[in-house]
Design a protein around this nucleic acid. Structure first.
Length: 765
DNA sequence: GAAAGTGGTCTTTTT
DNA sequence: GACCACTTTC
């Protein structure tokens, strides 16, 4: 066939080629890690544009993050041309949902009661609404946790259950409570003209139901539909995809059941497992050859994932050389762990072969990033943290954004309360006044912002026909002031760019007042505020009426990974295992490979009744391991501080799945471990590996304090200090109850330390 | 009403 | 150990 020689196909293996040229009908690509699925997706879309002459807007590609979408678009551009690729519809399910809602503003208002200027609430906003709903239902937010309720609501929404459905299906008292809270939560969201993340998926479907012609429009448009990371889609997403693909049936999904790590977010793995049943015509293509990682890494990954019972056996393999051994290193505590990682990265980068941006440090919980970050900060190794507290979730940033959101959507009472509570403008306006204002708003069917504006001293004839809210006493002045300020801002909004509006907001809100003290974190927070202004300048070229909509939308939909800036390379990446999905790095460290952390304790607790969470943890580890191209380090600590107290931990059971030939273990040999387990001489390396490969024993949980028996220190011995890093002992002085040591540290020079206090660890040579 | 102090909860992971 | 919500004090 002549297709064999087409330039778009030359760089692909036969299976990849087949995936690219099979353009008609349903296709399921089961793609192991590093098997080139992004390559397949980009080449296929290029193929559609070029060979099939498909118009770009007929091609939809749904990815897991917007970053992935942008990168794919870039790569397609390079394969075809800028113009040919513009107009492709690419993004996450959530951005697709917003797109559908925004493209049908009038129908959305008419049919699902969603006004065009709706806001997308983030988790903190949702929490506020949920809490209000709980109180309104006469429950106690301390007993009925808002987070629990939200997770129940999210679960219901991802299965497209309405509050009425939940009420009808309720099998327990808890579910009845959930139904009541859900009902009130929904009522409140609509009242606030706001939506949550799940609504971005369910509301478009409700719109389709209410007016099938809208759906038909999209069905006709999207002739070729692609879904990446299909194993992590949930029920609503499945329904949306199925609906959109119904006419053309050209549905191309890519995924890997072994990399499904979002069941907790209601992802439903049966979507991918049953794809063949849904579409009997399906052509399935398996990509199993790994191009990313060394032989040792691929072997380790293959072996460890085989431990999962609930799994279809599908080996991964590679033709790459074995490469370096995987390094397993046990350390005494989290500080040593962090210092080890930083020192090792420094060693790697000093050799010149590895650049800092080749390296990623991954961990199970965001809490682990703090200690790691401290170690990086002390060193000169540049780093960046993905995730944690997002920029847009910082208090000072949210405060300022609340003004923009309120100008955009005056019904945003939650935002108004935020402004009044947190910024100088709200001084003197207490809960009592708020109550009067909200009563007024309800009674007159107008927004609270209107109420305040109508109280401003010299105000427009807009409010001639309504009597302003009867706020009396000292709060009256405050209300008038707030009203006047909001009126000014509303007027400016029409003709100002976002950054002009920003300056105006800072001025009238006197927001800077709070940062006058000049304390260090005040400076930091003020610089965040200024960074927000810079961020907004990106949208200054847009028409003012469009800019605010687009900006607020972009703010709501960025993920942590989206915020990863390709520009500032040269930094080590610190990232959670979940966020690392889809990424790759030459060198990967996975920290905290311990029982209780990876697998997380909840999964261990659930295991006797439900194996699934534990298997998902193993898949998460698998995802981490397969991010590494040529070097993989696994670290664990013998004891670790969590919740502010010490706790001992065991190496993860998952390590038992890694073949000994692929992994080298370096164990601790100070006495914390041996005092506890009594079988930890550590004389020969590899003892840890033999231990973790033994069946897991049922040791009772050890006491909370680690026992400190001093190791034997000798001159010329290499040691490790949590703050100073690694060094050599140059002098040992025996004292009555202690040992005084002189240590020459690599970076901090010579220090004299008391062995009992220094928390030194002996490094195996 | 603001600032300082106190006690309870929390950490799994995120679009 | 950090954060939040709530109380006390001025």
């Amino acid at each position: 066939m002549q297709t064999e020689t087409h330039p778009l196909l030359t760089s692909l293996n036969p299976e990849q080629q087949r995936a690219v040229v099979t353009t008609d009908g349903p296709v399921l690509v089961v793609a192991g890690p590093g098997s080139g699925k992004t390559r397949v997706l980009t080449h296929r879309i290029a193929w559609l544009l070029e060979q099939k002459e498909a118009p770009p807007e007929s091609i939809l590609a749904v990815t897991f993050t917007n970053k992935a979408a942008n990168e794919m678009r870039e790569r397609i551009r390079r394969l075809v041309s800028d113009t040919a690729a513009s107009g492709l519809v690419m993004g996450t399910f959530h951005s697709l949902g917003v797109r559908i809602l925004r493209q049908n503003p009038y129908r959305a208002e008419e049919l699902i009661d969603l006004k065009p200027n709706f806001l997308i609430y983030d988790t903190a906003d949702q929490l506020n609404v949920a809490k209000e709903a709980i109180i309104h239902e006469r429950m106690d937010p301390k007993q009925i946790q808002p987070r629990r309720m939200l997770s129940g609501i999210s679960h219901a929404k991802s299965e497209m259950k309405t509050p009425a459905d939940v009420t009808n299906d309720a099998m327990s008292y808890d579910q009845e409570l959930l139904a009541r809270v859900y009902h009130e939560y929904e009522r409140r969201l609509r009242d606030l003209n706001a939506v949550d993340f799940d609504d971005l998926l369910t509301l478009p479907l409700r719109l389709f139901d209410a007016d099938p012609r809208i759906l038909e429009k999209y069905q006709a448009q999207f002739r070729y539909i692609h879904v990446d990371e299909y194993q992590d889609t949930n029920r609503v997403q499945y329904v949306m995809v199925t609906a959109l693909a119904e006419v053309w049936q050209n549905l191309f999904v890519v995924g890997d059941p072994d990399q499904s790590i979002y069941a907790w977010r209601n992802a439903d793995i049966t979507n991918i497992l049953n794809f063949q049943d849904d579409y009997p015509e399906t052509i399935q293509i398996n990509l199993e050859l790994n191009y990313r990682s060394t032989g040792h890494i691929v072997q380790a990954a293959d072996r460890l994932i085989r431990e999962n019972r609930d799994r279809i056996d599908r080996p991964i393999r590679t033709m790459n050389p074995d490469g370096d051994m995987i390094m397993l290193r046990e350390l005494s505590d989290q500080n040593h762990e962090a210092s080890f990682i930083v020192d090792e990265i420094r060693r790697l980068t000093q050799s010149g072969r590895t650049r800092p941006d080749h390296v990623a440090v991954m961990y199970r919980t965001t809490a682990q990033s703090r200690v790691l970050e401290e170690a990086f900060r002390r060193s000169e190794v540049p780093y960046r943290i993905i995730g944690g507290l997002r920029f847009y979730e910082r208090k000072e940033v949210k405060d300022i954004l609340a003004f923009f959101k309120l100008l955009y959507n005056p019904a945003d009472r939650i935002g108004l309360e935020r402004i009044i509570d947190n910024t100088p403008i709200g001084r003197g306006f207490g809960p009592r006044a708020m109550e009067v204002l909200l009563d007024w708003a309800r009674e007159h069917q107008r927004s609270p912002v209107d109420g305040l504006v109508s109280m401003a001293p010299s105000i427009s004839p807009r409010f001639k026909d309504v009597s302003p809210p009867e706020i009396t006493g000292s709060a009256r002045k405050a209300a008038e002031r707030i009203g006047a300020t909001l009126a000014i801002l509303q007027e400016r909004r029409e003709k100002s760019t976002l950054s002009e509006l920003f300056d105006e907001i800072i001025e009238v809100s006197e927001y800077r007042e709070q940062f006058r003290n000049g304390a260090e974190d005040d400076l930091q927070r003020w610089s965040n505020v200024q960074e927000l202004r810079t961020d907004m300048e990106r949208f200054d070229t847009l028409d003012p009426s469009e800019a605010l909509t687009q900006y607020l939308e972009s703010v709501s939909l960025v993920s942590d990974v989206d915020a990863m800036d390709e520009g500032d390379a040269g930094q080590v990446t610190l990232i959670t295992l979940h966020s690392a999905k889809g990424l790759e790095f030459p060198v990967v460290f996975i920290a905290g490979v311990e029982e209780g952390l990876l697998p997380i304790s909840r999964a261990i607790e659930a295991e006797p009744f439900d194996r699934k969470p534990l298997e998902e943890e193993r898949r998460l580890f698998y995802v981490g391991v397969t991010r590494a191209e040529r070097q993989l380090y696994l670290t664990c600590a013998t004891s670790r501080i969590s919740y502010g107290r010490f706790a001992n931990s065991e190496p993860s059971r998952f390590l038992a799945g890694i073949p000994a030939e692929a992994m080298k273990s370096v164990t601790r040999r100070d006495s914390v471990g041996s005092a506890r387990t009594g079988r930890f001489s550590g004389r020969q390396s590899g003892s840890l590996a033999s231990r973790v490969q033994a069946p897991v024993s049922f040791d009772p949980p050890s006491s909370n304090e680690p026992m400190h028996v001093l190791p034997e220190f000798k001159v010329t011995q290499r040691v490790f200090h949590p703050k100073f890093g690694s060094g050599l002992i140059t002098e040992v002085t025996e004292l009555k109850n202690d040992v005084e040591l002189a240590v020459e540290f690599q970076r901090h020079g010579k220090k004299r330390l008391m062995a009992s206090l220094a928390n030194l660890e002996i490094v195996e040579s």
